[in-house]
């Protein structure tokens, strides 16, 4: 772009403004990494929890959830380098980050006070996940994620009406429709774009 040498007409001005806004618009981080990582980790944990509860006598089925610890470490390290590498910061990207941070805070509170809510942890987490996933879908303008978020709400209601052991199976299904399917679709779209 050779500035000032070319005469700037009104139309040209408008064109520049439109082009630059369009160039910045698609810059929200369309990253499927977290959805895929947490989708798989939590699907496995849910199914593992259900399996131990239903088919074994092992008294501590919640032990399977320790696999979220390495996942959290991987997420933090990945996020740190990702943010360092990004050459642009968008308002929507920042909002998306804080939605999931707020989710994390709510999640920790639910886990700490699980005994006060009669251990209905899974439906509560699904309701929270529904909000965060739904809003993420709106920000990314990605319909599969919006639908996945809505399905989290639906499955949360089903879970609230089910016994504790089936809540884990419902949780696993909700994660497949809410995280994994949209996650793989997002990945495919990112690779094509």
């Amino acid at each position: 772009m050779d500035i000032d040498k070319e005469q700037l007409t009104n139309e040209k001005s408008l064109e520049i403004i439109t082009n630059m806004i369009a160039a910045a618009k698609g810059k929200v981080d369309k990253n499927s990494f977290y959805f895929l990582l947490w989708g798989w980790v939590c699907v496995l944990a849910n199914i593992g929890h259900y399996y131990i509860l239903k088919f074994t006598d092992y008294p501590e089925p919640q032990i399977v959830w320790v696999i979220t610890i390495p996942a959290a470490i991987v997420s933090a390290i990945y996020g740190y380098f990702q943010r360092k590498r990004a050459s642009v910061k968008t308002h929507l990207g920042t909002i998306a980050f804080w939605i999931w941070m707020a989710f994390l805070i709510s999640l920790v509170l639910i886990l700490i006070f699980a005994h006060r809510i009669n251990y209905q942890i899974n439906p509560m987490i699904m309701i929270l996940t529904a909000s965060a996933t739904f809003i993420s879908g709106i920000i990314l303008r990605f319909k599969p994620l919006i639908i996945g978020g809505i399905l989290f709400w639906v499955f949360a209601v089903l879970a609230l009406l089910s016994s504790l052991e089936y809540q884990y199976l419902i949780g696993a299904i909700a994660l497949i429709t809410g995280y994994l399917i949209p996650g793989y679709m997002l990945k495919k779209r990112a690779n094509n774009g």
């Binding site: 500035i3 700037l8 520049i16 403004i17 630059m20 806004i21 642009v88 910061k89 990207g93």
Partner: peptide, 26 residues
């Protein structure tokens, strides 16, 4: 009212912050 400066300001208006290389590329 200059092609490049207008482009830079339009670009920065849409984002929170951008690195030199990003602006150069766009």
């Amino acid at each position: 009212h200059s092609q490049l400066r207008l482009a830079v300001v339009s670009l920065l208006l849409s984002v929170e912050s951008a690195e030199f290389v990003f602006i150069k590329e766009k």
